[in-house]
Design a protein around this nucleic acid. Structure first.
Lengths: 366, 366
DNA sequence: GCTTGTGTTGGAAACGTTTCCAACGCAGGC
DNA sequence: GCCTGCGTTGGAAACGTTTCCAACACAAGC
């Protein structure tokens, strides 16, 4: 429609060369007050704005970061991405988003496209990070990289929580309330590192606390519970008294389903989640869970990545004094991020179990 | 790190010119079988992949679409964006994402950056679309545009639901169950077209059904309800018997809060939401709400936009036979998308109200 | 007056691609 | 044997920008 204005048009309008226009508009290099005036004037009069494509091609930086997550339906990722985007915007970066839907093939495809678009760096959550060929390929490119929610892999920083440690703490809470027989309910056990780690941490925690090893119950994508194996494990002798769901989203639907089975939470069964999504505080009983800060996770990943990008740029600009300083960017190995356990109504003393301080556990959340 | 491979490297390796490489790799133009072989071979040996920057600069198309939504924390937007991205990917487009956080200044900023990055089109949800200067600016650019969740503005297609009609139906449901005094609870009334439209539709529906005009209660960002004005309107004579929340997210937290106030849902107060997010089915009582298909909304917006982009491309390619056909792309005015009312437990007969068929309304959802 | 320096300017190359077009080799028809 | 035409090829321009560098004007120092 309206003709696209380029730097050449501005140059013609201002009666000078394109180099001068570039210098003035970028405040790089000097120009006489009078010329500057003319250029600025021409630019606004024409409504000029830079074409970032030309700029990026020349400068070899796009000021765009790629972001790959499994899904936005899980609020944890939605929040992380939202704050990542916000943080990036503050630093002048745009975000190119892709969802893998937990499919490794899509992951690889998406990463290829991000590379082709020449993003300056990538934040990614992989289904499985250890030995992932796509990840190896990325590392080979020397592109700044930061993982999100994945446990860090040698040489790649990550914004994450220590799933094993957190899950072990959940086990301790169950034990404290007299539970003896509990289960781990995993939504996508085969396709998720995080599910695995949480299970292992939980199992180890249970064993350490003298509980039986937890049963592992896998459920498929659907949130429908009419047919679930869980039901048959909740009644009769030797029934489970507690369930640890691999994330809050799953935990909430479990609570609803238990309700329909005529079981009360936490009277008959206790339920604990993982993530600390807001919705867990909106329902009654409130959801006991491992609270993590998804937004902080997103921000942290963005900061780390942008730090790496800036460092890389600086290294290229000033290669002379990198003589003695370490060649390779130190690749900040972030510590795992903070989490806390939220005691809330969905976790109570074991049904009929002898507890030390079971009564106190139904107190309102901290 | 690893040297970036360009088409020139491939040409040298294959012993031919860059034009030939381009033709072979793009399958545009002919080449002898032998040359093709050599080029293909060289490309894979070197691990070549196109630099989309150079490509876009030359072809004037980036195969990237911009997407601007207020927030990803509301699951409705998260789902819409997710499916929009999926649909776009299927058509070979990437998605550049921005969140405005309901801030018009950020909206404008983000749109400027999307334009500078030369996206091929934009899908956007604006706080307020009528007479929005940023929107006018975009239209002036002649850039393909499709709104999401906003009511369509003259000449700009939109994937949306008819908020007024849907809200009026909610009023009818309240009336059917004998409610006389109800309220509309709005989360961000000042900054959202959608909130406004829902309120107006609800008010008109109430009046049409012989109810009093609903009270309008605005709440701020926080989901904390300890201090809410709502509480005082729920007890004593003339108390409200029903609340229509401007979206499901808000409705769910209202239910939790009412619980804490010692009020039962739907025994004392009925609650209805808008959107139909999954979580509404996970809690008990299940949330009665207007069910919309967020994912379909995202897909539809993507399809419409990509259709416009393709049409634009075709028009530029073949300007000769556009003689008699309409100059301007017909800008498909989409009809509002389907929605349905979900009767669920959170909506029951009015407390002490004389109802026609109140009992049937507590039946399980359809 | 000539050199030297400083401050301002614009031409041109480069970034990686697509595509126009001219050039070339070669077979077939006369 | 020459012209035509076709299939194949590569040089070069173009997309919009940044930046190097040479050119220029002008003042100051000798």
């Amino acid at each position: 429609m309206s003709p696209v204005i380029t730097i050449k048009d501005v140059a013609r309008e201002a009666g000078c060369g394109i180099a001068t226009v570039s210098r003035v508009l970028n405040k790089s290099g000097a120009a006489s007050a009078e010329t500057r005036e003319r250029v600025l004037d021409a630019a606004t009069r024409l409504g000029f704005s830079f074409n970032e494509l030309g700029r990026s091609l020349q400068s070899q930086r796009t000021r765009t970061i790629g972001c790959l997550v499994p899904s936005l339906v899980n609020p944890v990722f939605a929040e992380a991405v939202q704050d990542l985007q916000k943080e990036a915007l503050g630093a002048g970066f745009q975000v190119l988003l892709a969802c893998s839907n937990y499919d490794p093939a899509l992951e690889a495809d998406a990463l290829r496209m991000l590379l082709a678009k020449r993003v300056d760096g990538i934040v990614l959550t992989l289904s499985s990070s250890a030995g992932n060929p796509a990840l190896e390929h990325l590392r080979g490119q020397g592109l700044p990289l930061c993982m999100l929610y994945n446990s860090p892999v040698e040489g790649v920083p990550s914004a994450y929580v220590d799933n094993r440690r957190a899950a072990a703490q959940v086990a301790a809470e169950f034990a404290r309330l007299g539970h003896r027989r509990v289960a781990f309910l995993a939504l996508r056990f085969g396709a998720s590192d995080r599910s695995h780690e949480r299970y292992e941490g939980f199992r180890d925690g249970c064993l350490a606390a003298g509980l039986e090893a937890p049963e592992l119950i896998e459920v498929d994508e659907a949130i429908r519970f009419e047919d679930v194996k869980l039901a048959q494990r909740l009644k009769g002798p030797g029934a489970l008294t507690g369930v640890f769901a691999s994330n809050d989203y799953l935990a909430l639907s479990v609570i609803g389903a238990l309700h329909d089975l005529g079981l009360s939470v936490p009277g008959d069964v206790s339920v604990v989640g993982f993530d600390g999504i807001d919705m867990g505080l909106a329902i009654r009983p409130r959801l006991a869970t491992v609270v993590t800060d998804a937004r902080e996770m997103g921000r942290s990943a963005a900061q780390t990545l942008i730090g790496m990008i800036d460092a890389q740029g600086a290294a290229t600009d000033q290669p002379q004094n990198s003589q003695k300083s370490p060649q390779k960017t130190p690749s900040p190995e972030l510590p795992g991020m903070a989490f806390s356990f939220r005691r809330a109504e969905s976790l109570g003393p074991a049904r009929g179990g002898g507890t030390d301080d079971g009564q106190a556990a139904t107190s309102p959340p901290s």
